[in-house]
Amino acid sequence: MIWGVKTPKASGEPAALIDSGARFIPALRAFFSRRAPAADVEDLVQEVLLRIQKRQPAPAVNNVEGYLFEVAANVLIDRGRRDRTRRRSDHCELQETHHPVDEMSPERVLQGREQVARVMAALNALPERTRRVFILVRFEEMSYKLVAQRLGVSVSAVEKHVMKALRHLHERLRDQDDVDNVGARETRRPG
């Protein structure tokens, strides 16, 4: 009987081994509680008992307690291997604090549209070739080499056009942010 549920015994398997396993549940819990997170202890104990139950008929076990803790140690080793393979330590729980709901308020939508309009205006202010190179590299995700071949220019020229576009966009958007911040401060001043 494991966890209060009767289990069928394999033919030839000593009933004493299964009964002894159930008798050692508190000791197994203590063993796992020192070596694994508290949330995993019951699962690990259950895994030990399942492995004992699935054991193929074999010679009788003389040292039941030693055998149980050897199985328990192997369960821990196997769990560690699975965790490393699945990179369990890299996972995180999906909690509201880590992933807050992003509400799309009308104000937020308007701000997004204004930002897109500023970026488009800054892009349209670029020289035609620079804008075309930038769009192919950043939006179409083409390599510098492929853009150079398509436009019949050197890779170095493509790099220069991209840098020129980035510099231009940075300056234009930074200037616009400065204007927005000054305007916001002036509207907040008591008059």
Rank of each mutant, 00 (worst) to 15 (best):
R23Y: 06
N181D: 12
D83L: 02
R188G: 04
A15Y: 05
Q115T: 13
L123W: 04
L76N: 08
P37Q: 00
E65W: 09
T187Q: 07
E13L: 13
G21H: 01
L123C: 11
D19A: 11
V64S: 11
E114S: 14
E65V: 09
P57L: 03
G112P: 10
N74K: 15
A121Q: 15
G12M: 03
M142A: 07
L173P: 01
L136V: 08
G4M: 06
L169Q: 00
Y67W: 09
K54R: 15
A30P: 04
V5G: 08
R84G: 00
E47C: 04
L123P: 05
N181P: 03
A117L: 13
E128R: 07
G112R: 15
E171D: 05
V137G: 05
R185K: 06
A121Y: 09
R132D: 15
E47H: 00
E107H: 14
L44P: 02
D40A: 01
R167A: 14
N74R: 14
G112Y: 13
N181T: 05
I77T: 14
A148S: 05
T130E: 10
S143M: 02
V101D: 11
L123D: 04
P26I: 00
P100C: 05
H170K: 09
A125L: 08
L94R: 06
G152N: 08
T130C: 08
A165S: 02
E171V: 02
R82Y: 04
R79Y: 00
R79L: 00
A184K: 04
Q53W: 10
V75R: 06
T187E: 12
A15R: 07
E13F: 14
A122Y: 05
R79F: 00
A22G: 14
Q53T: 07
L146Y: 09
S105K: 11
A10R: 15
Q149D: 13
D178A: 02
I2E: 05
L166G: 11
A157S: 09
S105P: 10
N74S: 11
L94W: 07
V116Y: 13
P37F: 03
R174N: 00
V101N: 07
P57H: 07
G183R: 05
D180W: 03
R84S: 02
